[in-house]
Amino acid sequence: MLFLSKIKRVYAMNHVDLNLMRTFVLLYETGSVTQTAERLYVTQPSVSYALARLRDLFEDRLFVRTRQGMEPTIAARQLYPSLRDALQQFQDTIESSRDFDPATCTRRFRLALTDLGEMALLPTLMRHLHEQAPQAELEVVPLEIEHAEEWLAAGRVNALICSRPLTSAAIARHVLFRDRYVCLLNPERFGGGPLTRERFIAARHVAVTSSSGHGMVEEVMRQHGIQRKVSLEIPHFSVLPKVLHDSDLVAIMPLQVAASFTEGSPLTIHELPFQVPEFEVALHWQAHASRSPSQRWFCEGIIEAIGEREG
Rank of each mutant, 00 (worst) to 15 (best):
S210H: 14
L18I: 11
K242W: 09
H15R: 13
F90T: 12
E71S: 10
V25T: 12
T73D: 09
Q135E: 09
D115L: 01
L184S: 00
R178W: 05
H205W: 01
G215D: 15
S163L: 03
A37P: 09
F237G: 08
G117T: 03
L54N: 05
V208N: 05
T73H: 06
F109Y: 15
G307E: 09
A12E: 12
E95W: 00
L184V: 05
R296A: 12
L240S: 10
L244N: 03
R77D: 12
H205M: 04
T43E: 14
S210W: 06
V239Y: 11
W297S: 01
L184D: 00
L18Q: 10
A75H: 08
V47Q: 02
V220P: 02
T262L: 06
F63T: 02
L255V: 14
H130V: 11
T209Y: 08
F279H: 12
S238P: 00
S247K: 06
M216Q: 15
L18N: 10
Y181R: 10
L152C: 09
A133C: 07
A136R: 03
L57C: 04
P45T: 06
S212T: 15
R127N: 14
L121E: 09
L249W: 04
T43M: 07
H147E: 14
I7K: 06
F109Q: 05
L283G: 10
V217P: 08
T93R: 02
V175N: 05
Q286T: 07
E137D: 08
L176Q: 06
E304A: 14
D246Y: 10
R291G: 06
D56I: 03
M126T: 13
L26I: 04
I145S: 05
E219F: 09
H174C: 11
E218H: 14
I269P: 01
Q135Y: 11
L152N: 09
I74A: 14
L129A: 09
T36A: 08
T23I: 02
I171N: 04
W297P: 01
R65H: 13
R110G: 04
L51K: 12
L240C: 11
F63I: 03
N19P: 00
E310N: 13
L57P: 01
F190I: 02
M216L: 15
L54T: 05
A172M: 02
V182W: 07
S292D: 12
S48R: 15
Q88G: 10
S290R: 13
R55L: 08
H245I: 00
A52K: 15
V206T: 04
L152S: 09
T167F: 08
R156G: 03
V33G: 01
L240G: 07
T196V: 03
C183P: 01
L249Y: 06
L185S: 15
P241I: 05
P81W: 05
K242T: 11
S163T: 14
V42N: 00
G155H: 07
H288G: 00
Q91F: 00
P194M: 08
L185K: 12
E308M: 09
R178E: 14
Q88A: 15
V281H: 00
T209V: 10
G117W: 01
Q68E: 13
R173D: 10
